[in-house]
Amino acid sequence: MREQARRTDLVTVVAGVALAVGWIWHQMGGPGAVAMLLLGLAALVGAIFSLTRPAAMSGEIGVIAAGVAAIALPWAFGFTDRPAAALTSWICGVVITAAGAYGVVRANRTRRSNPELAWSAHRNEVPGVSRT
């Protein structure tokens, strides 16, 4: 069951790396290149967080946010006149968003079946001491 979700996290890692280094391939500079790098790294961090905590929704939500921002990036930073760079941002953004959306579904299922895999499910209790 977890193997499919891990594949989507690995797809997100690959798309995040492609987005992070895309500005080099397209010989970009300026704020658009920095934004591409930072959004790629954000997707990468979210995917790694999702790999380590399979039931945590925060990593998947961060991946979705990075993907949506990558889709809007060419319009926000004005590099739609560079079709290769814009297509890289759009394609990576769609892949990252789709993988994140699928990851939310898988994380929710994992959270229901094994809540200990998410940080938010932990309780602060001292072993051996019962509350009355």
Rank of each mutant, 00 (worst) to 15 (best):
L10K: 06
I24E: 12
A121C: 06
L117C: 07
R106S: 15
P115F: 08
P83A: 07
L38P: 00
M28P: 04
V104T: 13
V21P: 01
D81L: 09
F49P: 05
I24F: 12
S89K: 10
T8D: 05
L37V: 04
T88Q: 09
A56H: 04
P54K: 07
G67N: 00
A55L: 06
A66T: 00
G78E: 06
V34P: 06
P74I: 04
R6E: 14
S120D: 15
G16K: 03
E3T: 07
A15C: 07
V13G: 00
L37S: 06
H122D: 07
T52E: 14
V126T: 11
H26V: 11
R7K: 12
G46H: 01
D9K: 02
P115V: 09
R6M: 10
P31Q: 10
P127E: 11
M57L: 13
E3F: 12
G62H: 09
A56S: 15
V17T: 11
M36A: 08
V14S: 06
G103V: 03
E60F: 01
G93V: 02
L73D: 02
E3C: 05
G93H: 03
V34Q: 12
V68C: 07
T80L: 14
W90A: 08
R131H: 14
W119I: 03
H122N: 12
V11T: 11
A76P: 02
Y102A: 15
S89Y: 01
T80K: 07
V95E: 02
G32M: 05
A101D: 05
A33R: 06
A69G: 06
V34T: 15
A98Q: 09
G67M: 02
S130N: 08
S50E: 06
A84T: 11
L117Y: 02
F49G: 00
V126A: 11
I96H: 04
A55K: 00
L44P: 00
T88A: 08
T12G: 15
E116A: 14
R123P: 02
I64P: 00
V21N: 03
C92V: 08
N108S: 13
H122P: 06
L38H: 05
T110F: 01
I61S: 01
G100I: 00
G59H: 01
G93A: 10
G78S: 14
F77R: 07
A84W: 10
S130Q: 13
G40V: 04
D9C: 10
V95S: 02
Y102M: 14
S58R: 14
